[in-house]
Design a protein around this nucleic acid. Structure first.
Length: 451
DNA sequence: TTTTGAGTTGTTCGA
DNA sequence: GTCGAACAACTCAAA
């Protein structure tokens, strides 16, 4: 029997500009695309109505249609990868496996297990960079160690991006010079190299144990004007000048290289956000302890309060602080929260309520459609003051001041908190000046004693 | 090795 | 309303 190659889709659910898929198709063997609904992950999700699972399911349906137009198909399995892979090797004469790298702790462990299954049968496992522009060891200090401060990291990142330029001689971008690192991988050119086969059935959402969450998904296409104005509009939740591309980056339904090219042309501020994404990805890869521990060890001694009732009110958007409540209600209703408001709600939980950042991180992880471990963890540690940021702990957001600056007409707040100003709206959970002083005192004492 | 400059997104106070 | 200083002190990165 003639052998085939398998391309394993994970967080790269597109055919266009897909590095690993491109290399698979350029190889000698016909390529069968595979996706595995991983029960190691799915079984741990707290809610059967999970918009992320629904999003992936929908993206797979799209992929499958595209593949079937090429006379191929997408094989979708459901189970533990360490059990599915031996099955795949029995079902198909597999000569090679291709995939794009994933840098989260669980993914690294999973891929090591799959690597050993494949190695036992002498099947090569080819992995590629696709999810980020630069991996953890591509942007390092001159002494070879990782950066832990964003600004110098971003300078080195930009220098590296610009260091290797090339100019395509033909094609749509002929004559335009651009970074070698943003080269696209035109997998579609080799669509004839997919394995020709009859369509196979894909399990429905219910068959893998989930139900639709009933929230709309943001489009993958974003207007050039939005990116161009991003620097001026992104901080205003009522305008919502943010891209909403997070979920598409997360599951690879768009290409990070393509968006970085647009950002280079249109908005340095937007490009900077993509650098943050790489930065936190490499922080997680170099310092995996951040998943459970503060990046700065001395913050392990902060005596976080225990107040389940207050945490509950924060989750539900019933703190009596309109901008905080608006954000939490937006998150609960839509699986999305505006970035500026993420900072305000996170600061409020950790500084005003003195509740452990890990509680908030876990809640966001459960609710956010665009949840990404590295960025969510980095953002929460930043808000709590225990992350890579060098800024002082006394930078405490004042919710009223933030609302005045970034939602001056209260449009955002009034949309999500319509009962504002009536007796139905709760009194503030804690008084601002008191909470601020309590936070300053607590951090000062804990850090002073620890260093 | 030592030195120097700097660090995502802030708030408050007083002139 | 606007502006600058104070809030504190440390660690990082690079020369």
């Amino acid at each position: 029997m003639k052998s085939i190659a398998i391309f394993w889709f994970r967080r790269d659910l597109r055919l266009h500009d897909n590095a690993g898929l491109y290399h698979a198709l350029k190889g000698a063997l016909p390529v069968l695309p595979v996706f595995i609904f991983d029960t190691n992950i799915l079984d741990d999700l707290p809610d059967r109505k999970d918009a992320r699972v629904e999003f992936i399911h929908q993206a797979l349906g799209t992929l499958k249609n595209e593949l079937e137009q090429q006379g191929s198909t997408l094989a979708v399995r459901h189970g533990k990868p360490e059990e599915i892979w031996p099955q795949l090797l029995r079902d198909f004469p597999v000569g090679a496996v291709y995939t794009n790298r994933d840098y989260e702790p669980y993914a690294l462990q999973r891929d090591a297990a799959v690597q050993s299954i494949l190695s036992a049968q002498n099947i090569p496992f080819h992995t590629f960079k696709d999810h980020v522009i630069f991996e953890k060891d591509e942007v390092l200090k001159d002494n070879g160690t990782p950066y832990t401060v964003f600004t110098p990291y971003s300078r080195k990142w930009l220098a590296k991006l610009g260091a290797r330029q090339f100019t395509p001689k033909s094609g749509a971008e002929a004559g335009q010079s651009r970074s070698f690192y943003l080269t696209s991988y035109p997998a579609e050119k080799y669509a004839g190299h997919f394995l020709k086969t009859t369509p196979v059935r894909m399990p429905g959402l219910a068959e893998i144990g989930f139900e639709p969450a009933g929230i709309p998904f943001p489009p993958a296409a974003v207007a050039r004007g939005l990116i161009r104005n991003y620097g001026q509009t992104r901080d205003f939740p009522a305008i919502d000048g943010t891209s909403r591309l997070g979920v598409h980056f997360r599951f690879g339904t768009i290409s990070i290289r393509e968006k970085a090219r647009h950002a280079q042309q249109l908005s340095p501020v937007f490009l900077n956000e993509l650098i943050w994404r790489d930065f936190y990805s490499q922080i997680l890869a170099h310092f995996p302890k951040v998943v459970t521990e503060p990046f700065k060890p001395q913050y392990a001694h902060i005596p976080w309060r225990t107040a389940p009732g207050e945490f509950q009110r924060w989750c539900e958007g019933q703190t009596g602080y309109p901008i905080v409540d608006a954000g939490m209600r937006q998150l609960n209703a839509t699986g999305y929260m505006h970035n500026r408001v993420r900072m305000i709600t996170a600061s409020f939980l950790t500084k005003h309520l003195l509740l452990d950042w890990r509680l908030g991180e876990a809640y966001f992880a459960q609710k956010l459609l665009d949840f990404d471990l590295a960025s969510n963890n980095g953002g929460w540690q930043w808000a709590a003051g225990c992350g890579t940021d060098a800024a002082p702990y006394f930078r405490i957001f004042n919710p009223a001041e933030q609302a005045r600056k970034f939602d001056p007409e209260s449009r955002y707040v009034r949309y999500w908190v319509p009962e504002l100003g009536t007796a139905a709206y709760p009194k503030p959970i804690v008084e601002h000046a008191f909470a601020r002083q309590r936070c300053l005192d607590t951090f000062k004492k804990a850090l002073g004693g620890a260093v």
